[in-house]
Design a protein around this nucleic acid. Sequence first.
RNA 1: GUCCCCAUCGUCUAGCCUGGCCUAGGACGCCGGCCUUUCAAGCCGGCAACACGGGUUCGAAUCCCGUUGGGGACACCA
Length: 471
Amino acid sequence: MSQVRVRFAPSPTGYLHIGGVRTALFNWLYARRHHGAFILRIEDTDQSRSTEEAITAILEGMRWVGLDWDEGPYRQTDRMELYREHALRLFKAGQAYWCVCTAEELEERRKEALAKGLQPRYDGRCRERGIANPTGDAALRFRAPQEGQTVIEDLVKGRVVFDNAVLDDLIILRSNGYPTYNFSVVVDDALMGITHVVRGDDHLTNTPRQVPIFQALGFQVPQFGHLSMILGSDKARLSKRHGATSILAYRDMGYLPEAMLNYLVRLGWSFGDQEVFSLQEMIERFSFDNVQKSSAVFNPEKLLWLNAQYIKQSEPKRVAEQLQPFLERAGVGAEAAGKSGEWMERLVLAFRERSQTLEEMAQAAIPYLRSDIQMDEAAAKKFLTPAIAPLLERLADRFAAVPDFDKEGLEAAFKNVIAEAGIKMGELAQPVRVALTGRTASPGLFEVIDLLGRDGTLERLRRAVSRAQRA
RNA sequence: GUCCCCAUCGUCUAGCCUGGCCUAGGACGCCGGCCUUUCAAGCCGGCAACACGGGUUCGAAUCCCGUUGGGGACACCA
């Protein structure tokens, strides 16, 4: 059996969206599963819509999620001679002809047909003109089969049959010399030896247009697999109005790349009841046999849950590294840089179970990095009262007396104070929490103290005492 | 309009190909409880679906036909 060769072929007309990443992922998984090659190809033949920035964003997105490619990135604009050469070959063989209908005329006829409720296909008026050497602007059209059927044995949809009567003679070479999509894909997929064309099912109806071109060119027809679309909550195709769709936007919101891939792979694919998959597991288990035919609605809550799972399970050291840019954006980059790696890991350990994103973790970490804390006024009013002040002061004194400020000593000191005062743990814990963090919610008190250290803890406690006395 | 694809809890899905094991399983979310110094996490429990109508069959979520609904395509875009 020949080697598997698959490709991801985005057009650089915008950022890399998550639907594209899922298509890339399925291709990549299939390649890795079968020890084949995953090829990246940029389809930039639309000069007016393709941009360098988009190409950069696509590569950046692919690298971020870790979908590495074995060949490419190829750019179609670097391969123009190839398309022209094969298009002309078709012309010489009588399988393509020059068309001098103008774009305006075509557009008019198209609208007319649509208005009449007919399929807006090219009427073939240049088909028999036999123009050999067009003088002005002319496009080259493929002479598509008019009879019979084109049958596709799709890897995910199964057998799909199209009547060739619905096909029209599509333009393969524009009058500006550039190839059109349906032609350049065929030439590239054939020349690059692509064995399985796996793409979105918005391309399903392009397939019967492409198959005859493969055949006319004398190329072997690859296998096709059409993946269902990702929909928004209103069941319409996922787009900007449903929220963020750019993969890099998710990076910037604090999602982990492995969580993104795990979420995306489960959108349309499953392996029994398993929800969490390492990359290795995905590779070992992936198969088109259990790829869903129907489209899937994008569910941000489940993504968030998966992200939280990954944050919890990842190596604290790695999470700490990935957290850096978020700390910088939160304005505490310098403070974080002053901390040891070991301290940063303790920070991650304290917050990994209460952060769904890295952004959330960075926000939660602010009071532990800055010396001046932002006090929640409502919380202060409720918990830092004159009545509690003497207890806080006593606690600060006892804490100060704990020899190496270790957890056991601190806990004993804390318990002594509440026992002496005859109050419950929570009655002192909340005021202390507010005193130390400025907030009513935080990790365990002794974890907080551990992060703050002796000086930070005592200073905040004392400051809270004077504030409480004045309240 | 024409062609193509699709249809199980709100959502992602298992089951469907190879009918009975389905009183339809899991996950997210939601609700309740446990744990608890707060917030989380974790654990336990609950609500919730075979789109509809015909067949075929002893028996249909599973096979067939139709209806309805949703999506996609129909460019000198990709």
